[in-house]
Design a protein around this nucleic acid. Structure first.
Length: 304
DNA sequence: GACCGTCAAGGTGCG
DNA sequence: CGCACCTTGACGGTC
C-alpha cells in the first residue's frame, strides 16, 4: 500500500509543469522548459521518498505541447538520459507513478479528429514511461468519455477505439469510474469486453453507484487488475467538501472519514492517490495514520 | 513591478 | 443557445 498525491508539490518552490503560450513556441524555449520541469520532478520525487510518499501522479505538462503538431523537436532523444535517470530513481525506491490525461482526451468521441488527438496525447504520455523504462504497472488513467445521449453506443465506441490503440498505450491504459456518467458497472462492462483494468474512485462511487457497498466495489475493481502485468489496484481517494456542490473534493483530509474508509480495502493493499486540494499536506497525514495502524513501514524506505 | 484577461484541446447541464 | 463548470496556475501583454 502506497500513498500519493497528484502532480503539484506545494512545499517546494518549483513546478514540473511550467509552460508557455502556443504563440511563443520555439525549440529553444521548449528545451529550456522541459529541462527545468524534469529537474523539478526529480526534486519532488526525492521529497516524496524522504517522507514515505511512494505513489505520485506525474504532471501531463512536463513537455509543453507534447502531442501538438507544432512540437516537432526530438525531445525524446534530447532528454533520454534525464528521463532514464528519473525512471531509475522511481524503480530504486519502489515508487508507483501514473499520468491522468485531462478532459480533452476522449476516446469515445463521435468526432474522429478528437479521437486522433486523444490517441496522440496518450502516445506522448506513454512514451515518457517508455523513456523512464517503466513497465506496464505505470498507468495512464482516463475516463470512459461522453454519453452523447446513448450509453450503449458510447461504450461500444470506446471498446472499438481501445482495440486500435498502439500496444504501448493499451497495456498501460486504465479507466476510472466517474461521478456523473459512467459508473463502476459501466466500467466493468468495458473491462469484460477488452480486459482493461478499472481504477477505483471511492468518492465518485459514492456519487454514482448501483447500490454496491464500498468494500464490494473495491473487490470488483481489484479483480480487473492482473497482479503481474498491472500491479496492485490503484485508487483515487477523496470525500465531499461540506456545504459545496455534490462531487466537490474536500480541501483537506477528513481523518475520521479516511479511518472509516480503510477497513473497506481489506487485504487488497491498493495504492491510494489522495485527490485533495492541499496535496502533500494531507498525504503526509494519511501516511501517519497508516503507520499508526501498522499498514505501512514506520520509517521510509532508504534511498538507493 | 503589479495587475488581470487569458490560455491547445471536450462535454455536460443549467438558466 | 450561451455560459459556467471541471481545476489551476501562471503566461504575458499592459499600464
Amino acid at each position: 500500500m502506497r500513498i500519493g498525491y497528484p502532480c503539484v508539490n506545494e512545499t517546494l518552490d518549483c513546478t514540473s509543469a511550467t509552460t508557455f503560450r502556443l504563440a511563443s513556441y520555439n525549440d529553444e524555449r521548449l528545451v529550456q522548459t522541459v529541462a527545468t520541469n524534469l529537474a523539478c520532478l526529480q526534486r519532488i520525487l526525492e521529497y516524496n521518498v524522504e517522507r514515505g510518499l511512494l505513489f505520485f501522479r506525474l504532471s501531463s505538462g512536463i513537455v509543453p505541447f507534447g502531442s501538438h503538431p507544432i512540437n516537432t523537436y526530438p525531445w525524446q532523444h534530447h532528454f533520454a538520459a534525464e528521463f532514464r535517470q528519473i525512471g531509475d530513481y522511481i524503480k530504486a525506491n519502489n515508487m508507483r507513478v501514473s499520468f491522468h490525461p485531462d478532459q480533452f482526451v476522449v476516446l469515445n468521441s463521435p468526432d474522429e479528429g478528437i479521437v486522433q488527438r486523444s490517441i496522440a496525447e496518450l502516445v506522448y504520455q506513454g512514451s515518457m514511461f517508455d523513456l523512464m523504462e517503466l513497465d506496464s504497472k505505470a498507468k495512464l488513467q482516463i475516463h470512459v468519455g461522453g454519453l452523447y445521449g446513448d450509453r450503449d453506443l458510447a461504450i461500444s465506441r470506446f471498446i472499438a477505439t481501445y482495440r486500435t490503440l498502439p500496444e504501448a498505450v493499451r497495456v498501460r491504459l486504465v479507466i476510472e469510474n466517474d461521478d456523473r456518467l459512467f459508473s463502476l458497472q459501466d466500467c466493468l462492462r468495458v473491462h469484460e469486453a477488452v480486459g482493461i483494468p478499472i481504477l477505483f474512485d471511492n468518492f465518485h462511487h459514492e456519487c454514482l453507484n448501483h447500490g454496491e457497498p464500498m468494500a464490494e466495489a473495491l473487490q470488483l475493481a481489484a479483480g480487473t487488475w492482473d497482479p503481474n502485468l498491472d500491479g496492485p489496484l490503484m485508487m483515487d481517494y477523496s470525500s465531499q467538501q461540506l456545504g459545496e456542490r455534490k462531487g466537490k473534493h474536500t480541501s483537506s483530509l477528513e481523518e475520521e472519514l479516511f479511518r472509516e474508509f480503510l477497513p473497506n480495502v481489506g487485504n487488497l493493499e491498493p495504492d491510494i492517490m489522495l485527490e485533495i486540494k492541499d496535496k502533500e499536506a494531507s498525504a503526509l497525514r494519511a501516511v501517519a495514520i497508516l503507520r499508526e495502524l501498522g499498514r505501512v513501514p514506520a520509517l521510509p524506505e532508504p534511498t538507493a
